[in-house]
């Protein structure tokens, strides 16, 4: 569904991505792992055209989205939705207005239909009945769930998760992990999860891609990552910094 060919990205003076090559297959849940600052979120934002490649190509359903103008990306963004790290809810709108936003933008005007679809999306993320709340009155985990409801309400074919469990307590993290799996089964979507959380990776992934120094360092199943003897991968999986007290 998504192909990345020799992707380079420079932000300011920093060469973040240095020739990334990867494929995201339709229907799979692919986890992109890597240390903080290795370019995972930068890579993810290329999949939906929020960032333009410095060089290389990003193809969504064989269409090079790097060559498209902002106004031409609308069709791609109907296929691919993203859950931002912070949820990125519109803070002047209620939960219901946030989730209804993509529907209204798509031209849905029937209030009953909007209300039903918002309720259904909230039910899918286990937040039924929270329509009237303002984002400021939600916890971090709830914001991410509402953000996810806003993403899935228009039924994209692919959902991108940018650090979905960062900043959450272990129970909220586990709950979000189950939610990702459940949505994948229920909606049959392609999912790309960017994280540095090993629990999230092993719980949700069909396939894991490990980014290191701006390139794909490892690609394989969670079991293959676990079994790898590569010191870089082992240090990451075990959480070893190599420093001593």
């Amino acid at each position: 569904m998504i192909s990345v060919r020799n992707l380079h990205k420079t932000l300011g003076t920093q060469h973040v991505l240095r020739g990334v090559q990867l494929e995201i297959r339709r229907g799979e849940t692919c986890v992109v792992l890597g240390r903080s600052g290795c370019g995972k979120s930068v890579l993810l934002k290329h999949f939906i055209g929020l960032l333009k490649p410095s060089s290389g190509q990003v193809l969504v359903d064989n269409e090079d989205i790097g060559a498209l103008h902002e106004r031409q990306l609308g069709a791609i963004r109907k296929k691919v939705g993203i859950l931002f790290q912070s949820g990125a809810l519109f803070d002047s709108m209620t939960v219901e207005e946030n989730i209804a936003f993509p529907l209204r933008e798509a031209g849905v005007r029937d209030r009953r239909e909007i209300s039903d679809r918002v309720a259904e999306a909230l039910e899918m993320v286990d937040l039924a009945g929270e329509q009237a709340k303002m984002p400021e009155n939600l916890s971090g985990g709830m914001r991410k769930r509402v953000g996810l409801a806003r993403t899935i309400v228009s039924r994209p074919a692919c959902i991108l998760y940018d650090e979905p469990t960062t900043g959450l307590d272990p129970i909220a993290t586990d709950s979000i992990n189950h939610l990702i799996r459940r949505l994948q089964k229920r909606l049959q979507v392609t999912s790309v999860v960017v994280t540095h959380d090993m629990k999230t990776a092993f719980h949700t992934a069909d396939r894991i891609i490990f980014l290191h120094e701006g390139r794909v360092y490892f690609e394989g199943t969670p079991d293959a990552l676990h079994a790898s003897a590569d010191p870089v991968l082992q240090d990451f999986v075990e959480g070893r910094s190599g420093e001593s007290d």
């Binding site: 939906i48 902002e70 990306l73 109907k78 931002f84 912070s86 809810l89 803070d91 933008e105 953000g147």
Partner: peptide
Amino acid sequence: GTMKVTEQIDALRSLGVH
């Protein structure tokens, strides 16, 4: 500015709104 730093503008773009 607040919308920019809280990714709300990216959210708008991701939802196909310029």
